[in-house]
Amino acid sequence: MNLFVTGAAGFIGGSIATGLVKAGHAVTGLVRSAEQAEQLKALGITPVVGSLDDRDVLIAQAQASDGVINAASSDHRGAVEALIEGLRGSGKPLLHTSGSSIVGDASGGKGSEVIYYEDQLPEPTVDKAARVAIDNLVLAAAQQGVRSTVLCNTLIYGHSLGVNRDSVQLPRLLKQARKSGVVRHVGPGQNIWSNVHIEDVVALYLLALEKTPAGTFYFVESGEAAFIDMTRAMAKAMGLGEPQDWPLAEAEKEWGYEMANYGLGSNSRVRGRHARELLGWTPKRTSVEAWILDEML
């Protein structure tokens, strides 16, 4: 297939684009700079320089492709509207990347027993309402002749398969620990996130491209862990002392409101049945703690 990928110079998009090339697809990737364009060329990806605000570019690339993967931003409505416009009536796939902080509870590091399922989503918080509205816009495009789907990723671990980029959550904990000599988690660190390895993410996107039913929402997960268990593994791997609780206010100073409250301080416990039942996805990596201990550094 001839595929168009936004975010092709990022961690998720770059890993997916590289996986597509290895699988024999021709990939065009949207990047923001000439430097990123050169990085893509080295990976066998055809670059297009532009941004998510370039509506005409997005429409033209969508029309010229056999399918689109939006992996640049979960929160840019204009880009999604342009991609849907370019694909309307074509029956081509549109895979949109979302994130499971849409069910995050901003608990300040406290634990929760609540687990969410793909057909039982809660009303979004005020902070996440706009993202959920974009997810719903993508799913509704199935009624406009687009084979649209939302892949809602959990905490992704593993090293980039494409350009040299970090994932969102664990590298921030690692960077803080290297800077201070102390591994820290938000509050007591009892909060739990579902998680998935980047290699399994790429495998799922490849499956979804080929055979996802239109209008399907997927939680992308292969396990879960409390942050205190991940920080303990990180401290052990780094040869540091026991991880320490960090008040939310201090965490916000280091990581900002969004990351401290949702990315690192919330519970996001989900179960993804659709990928396994509809696509036959079988994740191979199921222990984030083992990865932290054996492969992170």
Rank of each mutant, 00 (worst) to 15 (best):
M1S: 13
T6E: 01
T6Q: 00
A8T: 03
F11L: 04
G14Y: 07
S15P: 09
K22M: 03
K22P: 00
G24L: 14
G24T: 09
T28G: 04
V31H: 00
R32Q: 11
E35R: 10
Q36L: 02
A42P: 01
G44T: 07
D53S: 15
R55C: 06
D56A: 14
S65Q: 01
D66Y: 03
A72R: 06
D75W: 10
R77G: 05
A79I: 04
A82R: 10
A82G: 10
I84H: 00
G91Y: 10
L95T: 03
S100A: 14
G104I: 05
D105Q: 08
D105F: 08
A106W: 02
S107F: 05
E123R: 13
T125A: 13
K128S: 14
A130K: 14
R131Q: 13
V132A: 05
A133Q: 10
A142M: 10
G145S: 12
V146Q: 05
S148N: 09
C152R: 12
C152A: 09
N153D: 06
L155H: 11
R165A: 15
S167P: 02
V168C: 08
P171F: 02
R172F: 06
R172P: 09
L173R: 01
L173V: 08
Q176C: 09
K179E: 15
K179N: 09
S180V: 03
E199G: 06
D200G: 02
V202S: 04
L204Y: 11
L206K: 14
L209E: 00
T212L: 00
T216Y: 03
F227Q: 05
I228H: 10
A235D: 03
E242P: 08
Q244S: 06
A249Q: 15
A249S: 15
E254Q: 15
G256L: 10
G256Q: 11
M259L: 08
N261P: 09
N261C: 13
N261G: 10
R273I: 07
E277F: 11
L278D: 06
L279H: 13
W281V: 12
W291V: 00
L293I: 11
E295H: 13
M296G: 03
L297W: 10
